[in-house]
């Protein structure tokens, strides 16, 4: 068991290393002079020279890599070209809204999608099942920005229940304002995710319900609810958890759009701004951060498997 955890944790190190290498090469291997690329179309020769010097692009590439890696390991992601602030500071400023939006979305999604999918599987072929499946297809098909504006129109402009945009911190502004502002973005971001997870839950519970041990549970005289919760759902958990984890990648993409629609000052907005301004140090820093989070989540999922399925523990 401990060996398994140690193995999983250690195996993330080479993965992170490969990601770091790619992020580093991303700028260096792009065609043309990276300094000119960063500087953009209207830069003067001095601008380009200044950028080249700042990024250390005069040094041999191997030296550059180790310098960069050394800084990285000390938590130094470089300096933003446009704001002249350290990238770590910029990220730290924008971290809270994104983390909060991700957490509310994940929680809401799991609370809705797993019961919905289980219900659909249990009542397979019924009206409920069909309704859930139609919702899943629709939810998966509708683009985040379309849904976002539809919700804003209905809830904020027509009914005036919720604010149109913006973000309030749960720590500084209190719980009420926080939830008033985060509700619509959470709904927007959740729909596609609920669609995905409800579908997977349905499929995997449906499969488990055919298993012999479900028949055994019924032969014991167990009630249908307990058959579902105790026997089916726990066995179906591994594929469900896998998709929840993989879906985090989807979530990162969704965050960028959702934050733009609702004007939330989070990492998504930072990504967008950095890309538009070709602020490479920020882009690199964010890619590293997102990769790191993604790897971390996959690690957590691997460890969660062992909680759900004892066969993986040994």
């Amino acid at each position: 068991m401990l060996g398994y955890i140690a193995r999983r944790v250690l195996s993330t190190i080479p993965v992170m290393g490969v990601v770091a290498l790619f992020v580093f090469l991303m700028l260096r291997l792009s065609p043309g002079d990276p300094a000119a690329v960063i500087a953009g179309d209207y830069a003067t020769a001095e601008d380009i020279a200044r950028i080249r010097e700042r990024l250390g692009l005069d040094e041999p590439i191997v030296v550059q890599f180790f310098q960069w890696l050394g800084n990285l390991l000390q938590g130094d992601l470089g300096i933003s070209i446009f704001t002249n602030l350290p990238v770590t500071t910029l990220i730290a400023q924008r971290l809270e809204p994104t983390i909060m939006l991700t957490l509310t979305t994940l929680t809401f999604t799991i609370l809705v999608a797993v019961p919905l999918g289980t219900l659909a599987a249990w009542k397979a072929g019924s009206l409920i099942d069909r309704a859930v499946m139609i919702f899943a297809v629709a939810g998966f098909s509708i683009p985040v920005f379309v849904l976002g504006y539809m919700l804003i129109y209905q809830f904020s402009i027509e009914w005036r229940w919720l604010p149109v945009q913006g973000y309030k911190s749960i720590f500084e502004d209190g719980v009420g304002p926080f939830f008033r502002h985060i509700t619509l973005p959470t709904l927007t971001l959740s729909v596609i995710y609920i669609a995905l997870i409800a579908r997977i839950t349905r499929a995997s519970v449906l499969e488990i319900l055919q298993e012999d041990y479900v028949r055994t549970a019924r032969a014991k005289g167990q009630s249908e609810t307990k058959v579902l919760l105790r026997h089916a759902l726990r066995n179906a958990a591994v594929p469900i958890v896998t998709v929840i984890g993989l879906g985090v990648a989807l979530l990162i993409g969704g965050v960028v759009v959702t934050e733009s629609v609702y004007n939330i000052p989070g990492l998504g907005r930072l990504v967008l701004d950095a890309v538009l301004k070709r602020d490479y140090p920020i882009i690199q820093g964010l890619i590293l951060l997102f990769s790191f989070v993604y790897i971390l989540i996959n690690l957590m999922i691997d460890l969660l498997y062992t909680v759900f399925d004892p066969r993986i523990r040994y």
């Binding site: 012999d212 055994t216 014991k220 066969r311």
Partner: peptide, 21 residues
């Protein structure tokens, strides 16, 4: 009645038992 008065055992004990319990 199932379990209490009548009980059943099956062909394949590996699949008839819940693997995660």
């Amino acid at each position: 009645l199932r379990g209490e008065r009548m009980a059943m055992i099956f062909q394949e004990p590996m699949t008839a038992l819940n693997p995660v319990m």
